[in-house]
Amino acid sequence: MNKKQVWIDTDLSVGMKRHKREGYCDVDDGYAILQLMKAHTINICGISAVFGNTLIENAFMLSKKMADEFSSYKIPVYKGAHKGIDLKNVKTNDAVEALAQTLKQKKLIIMAIGPATNLGLLLLKYPELKSQIQEVVLVAGRRKPTDYFKIGNQGNHAQDLNFDLDNDAFRILFEHKVPVVLCPFEISNKVWVKKQDLETLKNGEIKNEWLAEASQPWLQQWLEQGAEGFNPFDVLASHYIVAPEDILSEPLNARLEIHLDDTVKGNNKSTYKQYLLCDTSEGYPITYCYDVVKGYHQKLISSLVIHE
C-alpha cells in the first residue's frame, strides 16, 4: 500500500502551563499527532517544532517525547523557529534545513498546526522546492471578521493564534502558490471532546493514557468557561489528511485584511489586527473545510483508540 508521506510542523504543548498567563496550554496538537501515528495509511517523515502555544524548547521536547516513546517507527525531530519571521533578517534553522533535504528527495503533505513560520522560511530560502509540496494543511482562517472564535458562554473570544503569531508566513505561502487547505474554527467548533471521551481514550496504551491524563486540566478550563467540553482544533487537520472524505470542504479565496481586534473587550477603535478571510471574492485559491460528516465523532474516537 502506498502510504501518504507526511511532515508535521507543530507547536506541541500537551501538559504545559502557559508562559504568558495563568492556566494550561492546548492539547489538540497531541491528538493530531496521535491520529497520524495510528493511521496505517500515513508515514510520518519528520516532525519540526515551532513556537506558538508554548516556547520552542517545550514544543521540541514534547515532539521528541511523542516520536521517541510513542511511535512504532523512527521519526526524526528538529527544532525550528522561536519567533515569527523577521523579513529584515531572514535566518534558517535545523527544522527548515531538514525539511528542505527531505523535499529534495520526495513530495510531502505538510500538516502545519502551529504558526507557519518554518514553512515561510523554507519558501524564502528554497523557493525552488515549492513544487515538492503536495499541500499544506493549516488551522486558521474565517469567512468574516465578525465570525468570532467563541470559547464557552462568558463572552470570551480566542485568537486565530497560528495566523496572528506570524501573518507574513501565511502571506508567503499564498504568494508562492503552494496548495493550501484551511481547517478553521468554523469546523473545529462543531467537534467536542468531553469527559467520557477522555475515559474512552484510556485504552491501556501508554501514549493514550498520557494524552488522556494531560487533557484533564485543559478540559477543566473549558468547563469553567461554560463549555460542554473542548474543541480539538488541530485534529481536524490530521483527519483531513487521513480521511478527507469525512471532512466537508469547498474552494474559496483567501486574503489578509485589517479590522478591529475582536479579542479586546470594549475595543473603542483603538486596537486593530490582521485577519485571514476566506470567501468567493478575489484572493489566493485555497480549500476551506467547514463541516464534518454525520457520525464523525465516533470516527474520530475510533481512530484514536485503535491499537497499532
Rank of each mutant, 00 (worst) to 15 (best):
L277G: 03
F174K: 15
L165P: 00
K130V: 09
L12E: 09
N253G: 04
F70I: 12
V77E: 02
S303G: 06
H82C: 07
L198A: 15
R142I: 09
F60V: 02
G229K: 07
D147V: 06
P76Y: 11
H157C: 11
V6Q: 02
Q220S: 11
N93Q: 00
E205S: 13
D168R: 12
D197R: 10
P285Y: 04
L138V: 13
L119W: 03
K20P: 06
C183F: 00
H157V: 13
V139K: 00
A237R: 00
Q298Y: 10
D279S: 05
H19Q: 13
Y148K: 11
E257K: 11
S281M: 10
D147M: 06
E22K: 14
N162F: 05
D160W: 05
Q105H: 15
Y275N: 00
L260M: 15
A32G: 04
W210K: 06
Q132D: 08
K265H: 11
Q221D: 12
A39P: 03
Q225E: 09
L121V: 08
E186D: 07
K107S: 14
V193Q: 05
K20G: 09
T10F: 02
T287D: 02
S238C: 08
N203C: 15
E250I: 02
V6T: 11
A140H: 02
G52Q: 02
H307N: 15
L161R: 07
E308G: 12
F170R: 01
R18M: 11
A98F: 00
T92V: 13
L62M: 14
S215D: 15
W222Q: 10
S63H: 05
Y126A: 04
K194G: 10
A95W: 01
D68A: 12
S238R: 03
C183M: 08
N253T: 07
L119M: 11
P145G: 05
I56R: 00
T200H: 13
Q105P: 09
S238W: 04
K207V: 14
G30P: 01
G266A: 11
K106M: 13
D11G: 09
G229R: 10
Y31Q: 05
F70T: 07
A169H: 01
I258A: 10
L211Y: 05
I109A: 01
V136P: 04
K4I: 00
M61N: 05
Q101L: 10
H259W: 15
R171Y: 14
K150Q: 13
H297G: 03
D86P: 04
K83D: 07
H40M: 01
E245S: 08
A32P: 08
A81N: 00
L252N: 00
G266V: 07
G204R: 08
S281D: 15
C183V: 07
L62K: 06
G141Y: 08
F51L: 04
K299I: 02
L182N: 06
H239C: 02
C289E: 05
K65Y: 14
V292I: 06
N189Y: 06
D168A: 15
K3V: 05
I172F: 14
V96E: 02
N208C: 15
K4W: 05
Y296E: 04
P145S: 12
R143D: 08
A227F: 09
K64Q: 12
